[in-house]
Amino acid sequence: MSTVESPDTNAPKILIITTIASSYTGANTVGQARAQYAPNTYIMRVPDPVMFPEDFYLRCFEKGFSGIIIMSSGSDCPYEGAYGRLSARVGRVYLTMREKGIPTNRLKLTTVCTVCKHAFLKEIDDMQKVVREQAA
């Protein structure tokens, strides 16, 4: 088997938190369409990112993730009140990040639906730029 050595192998890693209801399927849609993005992206699927305590995100940064994209279901969220709670929580994570001197653009809360192919790729693109700039 031929392998192509990639300059991206040791690229800074991005964690993508997706929801079962929306964005995880969205990520599959991107695959079904064979759109391409870099493999330094790790997709985690959960019922809803509202479950994560604030320190979870900080721990991810500590352990070695350079960027985190939370792809929530937004208004398509099947859980009552979850999106409001999530965005408030992420707001508090930003405060802590600021205190700790972690650039806040390394964490992004966004909404991706089951067919939001372009939005998915754009979010990854944007975060790639952020983590590259900071690695440089």
Binding site: M1, S2, T3, V4, E5, S6, D8, T9, A27, N28, V30, G31, Q32, R34, A35, Q36, Y37, A38, P39, N40, I43
Partner: peptide, 15 residues
């Protein structure tokens, strides 16, 4: 597959 081999076709080592 959907989230690795199909989207990282040009980067076998990375995938």
């Amino acid at each position: 597959r959907e989230q690795a081999s199909w989207v990282h076709k040009g980067d076998h080592e990375g995938a």
